[in-house]
Nucleic acid binder design. Structure first.
Length: 421
RNA sequence: GCGGCUUUGGUGAAGCGGUUAACACACUGGAUUGUGGCUCCAGCAUGCGUGGGUUCGAUCCCCACAAGUCGCCCCA
């Protein structure tokens, strides 16, 4: 017996209702904010992610599902959707329609991680991308949509962290300052940080192993090194958020793992989830579009991990209660009644009633039991007597009352009763 | 990729080196003839994650692997 591959999960009928509930919320919200759905392929040329996400990032270096297809192309299962959305935006010249293109997506992403609750190898993200505008108002809108999404599902106590990671003008300056600061402390730092020193010195600030080292406090902060443009942008964003009453925490150590981020970086945490508490994250990526071959175009976006959102909803008991899925259960007595019962079943469905019956020819008692378990409001009982009389016994399973009705009138009767209930 | 913990039927689980692997729920059937949700009775793991090993004998001991889970890394 072959099981589902490690890190994947079947979404079973019972769970599907919760997924549909969340996806419906997403579509409503995106409609409200003017975002349009885009669906890009699950796999792309590996090259796209190398350019878009950046070599040297963990996602690209150790987490991608990459393979050579039969035509000798290097293909990668998308580990995120931003690069692909931008690729599509350029390939299909969406920029020609309007100056600002607002997209959202829902879909599977793939990363070869060690699985854990809230961290799957195939996982699902909902995300948005706003392409073509540099005004921090759009950054604020992006953050607000992310918060609205989570809050509209009933989640509370979300923590919004905010930072600016600068731009190609100021980040190199900051990098250098950091390296100067840490150079003489290299031998005290943990092994991870020694490699971070060259690769991504900003990550040293985020290191938990070295967090208690006294000198960490004195490390230069990115926000003190921003260029004027980035500074203004960051101030502008904070102003909008404050005006909107959105509370946030500045976190100068918040660094996004993907290379394409510039200026705004943010993360929304739901801490009860434990290690995988980052429920949504995003930011601005003004350099990405040019990197992928378009004209320089400012852009912002975020992505939310749906497994994590569902996990949080489950934990907080915020998922909608299961609905009864049957209106009427047809009970057939004896072999002779089977065919007429089946016919009645189909007529009920054609009339828009959710009807079910037993196909196994079981005892009446067993069928009644099934009817009771199905949460059906009514049972229609059909035996030889009823067939002779062109009638059917209609039992209200909630009131435990029953009456014999003429076959021709049952459907109307049921429709009336059910619409009242 | 690293470290810890876990792994018994459809589910929740008890269990001891040695032939009935508890109990509960679920499921199926029945308690005299055509009626559910209550009650009662019966049935339901030749099997204890997989593969090795130790032993006269292992679900309970050892090893490896796998999966799950917690934390790290990273991220959503």
């Amino acid at each position: 017996m072959t099981n589902a591959p490690r890190g994947t999960k079947d979404i079973l009928p019972e769970q599907a209702a919760a997924w549909n509930y969340v996806e419906k919320k997403i579509r409503e919200l995106c409609g409200l904010y003017g975002y349009h759905e885009i669906r890009t392929p699950m796999f792309e040329h590996t090259e796209l992610f190398h350019r878009g996400i950046g070599e040297g990032t963990d996602v690209v270096d150790k987490e991608m599902y990459t393979f050579t297809d039969r035509g000798n192309r290097s293909i990668t299962l998308r580990p995120e959707n931003t690069a692909a959305a931008v690729r599509s935006y350029l390939q299909n010249k969406l920029f020609a329609d309007t100056a600002l293109v607002k997209l959202f997506y829902i879909g599977s992403m793939f990363r070869y991680d060690r699985p854990q609750a809230g961290r799957m190898r195939e996982f699902h993200q909902f995300g948005i991308e706003a392409l073509g505008e540099q005004n921090p108002m759009v950054d604020a809108e992006t953050i607000l949509l992310a918060l609205d999404f989570l809050e509209s599902l009933g989640l509370k106590d979300l923590k919004l962290s905010l930072n600016s990671v600068g731009c190609p003008k100021c980040r190199p300056v900051y990098r250098q300052k950091l390296q100067e600061f840490f150079r003489d402390k290299l031998d005290v730092l943990c092994n991870d940080c020694k490699t971070r020193f060259d690769k991504n010195p900003m990550r040293i600030l985020d290191c938990k192993a070295d967090a208690d080292k006294g000198f960490m406090q004195d490390a230069p902060k990115i926000t003190d090194c921003l260029c004027e443009e980035c500074r203004d942008h960051f101030d502008g964003l904070q102003g909008y958020l404050k005006d909107l009453g959105v509370s946030f925490e500045l976190d100068s150590r918040l660094v996004r793992g993907l290379d394409y981020y510039t200026k705004t970086a943010f993360e929304i945490k739901y801490e009860p989830l434990g290690a995988q508490s980052a429920v949504a994250g995003g930011g601005r990526y003004d350099g990405l579009i040019e990197e992928i071959g378009g004209k320089p175009t400012p852009a912002v976006g975020f992505a939310a991990g749906l497994e994590r959102v569902l996990l949080a909803l489950e934990q907080q008991n915020l998922l909608p209660a299961r609905q009864a899925d049957t209106d009427v259960f047809v009970v057939a007595l004896g072999d002779a009644a089977q065919a007429p019962a089946f016919e009645l079943l189909i007529r009920l469905r054609r009339a828009g009633l959710r009807a079910a019956m037993d196909y196994a020819g079981r005892s009446m008692k067993a069928q009644m039991k099934q009817a009771g378990k199905s949460d059906a409001h009514f049972a229609l009982i059909l035996g030889e007597d009823e067939i002779k009389e062109q009638a059917v016994v209609c039992r209200d399973l909630q009131k435990s009352e029953q009456q014999k009705l003429a076959m021709g009138t049952v459907i109307d009767y049921l429709k009336r009763e059910l619409s009242e209930a």
